[in-house]
Design a protein around this nucleic acid. Sequence first.
RNA 1: GCGGGCGUGGCGAAACGGUAGACGCAGCGGACUUAAAAUCCGCAUCCCGGAAGGGAGUGGGGGUUCAAGUCCCCCCGCCCGCACCA
Length: 883
Amino acid sequence: MARYNFRETEAKWQAEWARRGSFTATEDPGRPKYYVLEMFPYPSGRLHVGHVRNYAIGDVVARYRRAKGFNVLHPMGWDAFGLPAENAAIANKVHPADWTFENIRVMREQLKLIGLSYDWDREVATCTPDYYRHEQRMFLDFLKAGLAYRKESWVNWDPVENTVLANEQVIEGRGWRSGALVEKRQLTQWFLRITEYADELIDALKGLDRWPERVRLMQENWIGRSVGATVRFPFEGRADSLEVFTTRPDTLFGASFCAISPDHPLADEAGAGNAELAEFIAECRRMGTSEEAIETAEKRGMDTGLRVVHPLDPSIVLPVYVANFVLMDYGTGAIFGCPAHDQRDLDFARKYGLAVKPVLWPEGSGVLTDEAYAGLPESERAAFDRAPEQDGRLHVSVTAYSDTDGGTYGYDLGSLTDGRSLSVSKAKDIAIAAVEERGAGEATVRYRLRDWGVSRQRYWGCPIPIIHCDSCGMVPVPEDQLPVELPRDVSFDRPGNPLDHHPTWKHVACPTCGGKATRETDTFDTFFESSWYFARFCSPHAEEGLDGAAVDYWMPVDQYIGGIEHAVLHLLYSRFFTRALRHCGYLGVDEPFAGLMTQGMVVHETYRAPDGTWLYPEEVELQGDAAVRLSDGAAVERGRLEKMSKSKKNVVGLEHVVESYGADTARLLLLSDSPPERDLEWTDAGIEGAWRYANRLWRLVDDGLAALPPAGAPKPDRFSQPAQALRSKVHKTIQGVDEDLENFRLNRAVARIRELTNAIGEFTPAGDGDGWAYREALEASVLLIGPIMPHLAEELWQALGHAAPVSESPWPAFDPALTVDDTVTVAIQVNGKLRTTLALPRDVARDIAERTALDDPSVQRALDGSTVRKVIVVPNRVVNLVV
RNA sequence: GCGGGCGUGGCGAAACGGUAGACGCAGCGGACUUAAAAUCCGCAUCCCGGAAGGGAGUGGGGGUUCAAGUCCCCCCGCCCGCACCA
């Protein structure tokens, strides 16, 4: 008996798919479309099995949808600009372009090895002028539309990558890729006006019902909408006023001081005539903004000597402090302090002897302890707001408060409040109205989100199509001069941006006046390219970039698949970019990705030699719980499971696995061992197990062929009892797998198919019609495993006598009549405790079920003569006898 | 601190409020084999028992229900995101 020859089979079918153009996508308005996309990779070198999981999941979706009759678009390409190419250039004296294209070549071959159903005709690499010329035009359109602008500002500088980073690319104070502590620098940069869409980006999250809740929350927090008020406190003895932002205007009467950031313009002004204050401000600035510095810094401040008047009651005068905890880049860089209802303000007030003035308090308590009272927790506020009288726990008042010295202050709110309690949200409305009425402020919405800085001081990126002219200023590169191509002859022999050092490239004639001018030498952030590639895939060869008809047909992406690490990077930028493109008439959708699945990582044990160096799995032999190095037998420390990474060497090479077990086996393990969104551990035992299954299925078909009627033989009129049972299993499996694949329960789908395989293994064709049922079962198994193990499925399908490949065959249909059994197993409980199970006819009458249960010996034993008081019958499931 | 998620056999995991542990990995026993591998059959949550059977059991404690891994409340632990955000 032949063994499954995966090498021959996989190569054969990959060639056959390519020959037939099985996965070529063409717009067809007559068929429902389905666009499935995996986040395209950066061509960093080689793929390992960790990368493959992402693509395998997408491939299951693509193949399944195709079989279900959808017109499927499933493309692949390369996010090909980026810093590693420049680093390689510096380290190995190889040009970034050559390095990148060589990596693409290798990785393309690797992807082809695993039989992914891509339409390779649509492949794009973002580093080609054919791709980036379109985004240069987009940028110029953004500029016209006011969505792109240039300004000098404080930016995040990564001292290792020698470039600016966007806020989203700074994780815990460090560069997202280099891990270096980020510095603040003042530079002139290009920005995209993502804040223009802050509201839209938050509000539309609700409609993304096929996105993980987690990702939606992360984006909502990142955008960080705060609803409140801007309030101006007039300075005493000056004409101007101090502007503060607050989310708690209801506590305005609790103010006992104001505080400004050390970076606030007024701080310098006040420090000018006050050496002590100037020294304090300088000290605060030295502290830095790293997380550690913030954690350990105590709340400190110093009186500026400035005084402001309370906007609602001119008799109240407040001191203005410089405080180290007030941030210049949030709100207005100034706050009013309300110690009674903000912990930080309370700590500050206690330290500097400032008044504490409660204006809201829980029922029955007017006494303030060391804890500030901020009102009900968020989760309980809505209920209180609906019916404050009934709540009984909290009284809120903006009308009056008692100071520690017994004084009373307030303003007239008319009849609205007259002694009744008020909810916080109502009090906010009233306070804002009062402030607005006096011209002292207005309702304001603020965001944490900052505009997206897209300038990078690097070579290997898309040139920003701008020319700087001394007489004309900033001049967009005229459209007929696009693209601005990267020069090839650059040198990396000194730090900084090679474009800047290039002898000729940046010197051009001004398009407007013809005078001497220079090109912008910054390039775009590489997230620029990935913000629209999904649209380019719809018309990858269109001269105009995005072909309207094609984009309208395919967009949005129906199912997007990728890692959670892009929750607020790529996924937020793309949502913004799509809106900006819509605004400029490039496409007609708001949201690029209708469905999102974030798959877990592939993890593997780490191995460490006695000298502390990491070892590859193939350098190590496992011996029970211990491990030794193969070369010298030295004891190896087995570390925790971690994401596969080159640095820890816990990677399993793709070629190695494909050569030893085949692509289908690797796919099976990656798809079946854990739910897709959870992490998956790659083990030798796991791949062995998957390999066993591939062979088992192969043998089952190979051995069974002799007993089968020809393909397409007429269905017999009747079946033997075992054949009928097998048929029932087949149709239930089809139904179940269908549901599982619709809901991304890929591991569950595989489990069901294996159950069917086990059932077929136990079936021996004997009676009339058995052969037909046997064929039906084998064919169903092959078709169902098709999206997961496509090469094996094709080979078996052909062996079963079919001319058309699985990849062009429809998904099997199930007969609903066969998914319900005539006999059901019913749990028999006494007082809710399982005593036995009984096989009963489906939908048997309640009283018969009850009587059968009562007659059962084990039930009799459990009842032990007690009287049954109540009987619960859940049809076809449970009979519960209650005594 | 705020927000979110998760705790089920030795391990990965399944379970519309209705038979907990499907499917698999590792393990144990048996068949085949000179032997091994491969394959096939069987056993496998824990405790008592030779067995029949019984008891306990989904992080801990309470509750709702005829019935709770699943719903509600409190606590413990782990993971992730955000954070002097006014």
